[in-house]
Amino acid sequence: MLEIKDLAARVETEEGDGRQILKGVTLTAPKGEVHAVMGPNGCGKSTLSYILSGRDGYEITGGGATLVGADLLDMDPEERAANGVFLSFQYPVEIPGVPTLTFVKEALNAQRRARGEDEVTAPVFMKQAREAAAKLGISNEMLKRPVNVGFSGGEKKRMEIFQALMLEPKLLILDETDSGLDIDALKVVAEGVNALRSPERSMLVITHYQRLLDYLKPDVVHVMADGKIQATGGPELAHELEREGYDKYVGAAA
């Protein structure tokens, strides 16, 4: 499971001064559960996903985060990936010249090597890839194209979920996965995410809006504002936010 305790962090700016973004985040997502993190723009929820996955440019000023007991914050991004962290990006990056299947196979085998496991053979990999692609309506032709190049917003998000299905993480973080999706694309992506639900996996769904949660049915909803978790509750909390907005929490923080 994921345990975040009193996590505080600053963003480093080019001028060398920093701004405190996380001001003591505490959150526990046991395996098998889906946790939503909701909050207004600028509250620090995307920063949380970057800090958990190890992006440069942040300074941890307090607290910590562990996944199944392993200290995440001391690891390089690739070590975190091998330990089971997967971030579905809000804006998946295009990588010209690298076919998607080649990329995913290299990534999977790099993770397996790091864990001391045997590499997956080409026939086994291809079988898994075909099954995962079928679940998401991804064609063979798309898998051969360079990573995310020329894909629509919805296709990019489907490709992120495809990669998650292939890499089988212990922690799946979805960063604003609903942004830029129409309702049909949202349904396909949500079905893919639901297929990833497992008693062995924790999920953190970071979102501004309720609508993705209609399909994902979180077990727990956290409200984040001003760099802290301001409230934690059941799915009804998301509906309350949809009706009343974030004003109450933004006010509380001020």
């Binding site: 998946p92 990056v93 990534a107």
Partner: peptide, 15 residues
């Protein structure tokens, strides 16, 4: 492209 580099490392490739 630093964004691409982070993306690839996030998926498990070493730097």
């Amino acid at each position: 492209d630093e964004d691409a580099l982070f993306y690839m490392r996030q998926r498990g490739l070493d730097e």
